[in-house]
């Protein structure tokens, strides 16, 4: 029961996501679907949702060309 509660809490906070060390993409699996890298980290901070990469200046600064969720810092 306690485990389920903890799981729900972590899901709510988005902390179950892993960040790709190469492209900073946030994902749930074990392999990054973008760069096919297996180098993932659960220790990340800063959160960006890119909705329209073509027109977003933040996406340009981050060098992101696809919509999605990204971490700002991956340890």
């Amino acid at each position: 029961m306690a485990k389920t509660k903890a799981d729900a809490k972590s899901r709510k906070a988005g902390s179950n996501l892993k960040a790709c060390r190469q492209c900073h993409n946030l994902l749930e699996g074990d392999v990054c679907p973008v760069c096919q890298s297996g180098a993932l980290s659960e220790d990340w901070s800063g959160y960006v949702v890119i909705i329209d990469p073509a027109r977003s200046e933040i996406a340009k600064l981050m060098n992101v060309k696809r919509p999605g969720k990204f971490a700002l810092k991956v340890r």
Binding site: G46, D52, I58, A59, L72
Partner: peptide
């Protein structure tokens, strides 16, 4: 909501 209602929001940033 942006995707659903097709609004002109390009990104959302949540710094730590």
């Amino acid at each position: 909501v942006t995707r659903k209602e097709n609004l002109d929001i390009r990104s959302v940033l949540v710094p730590e």
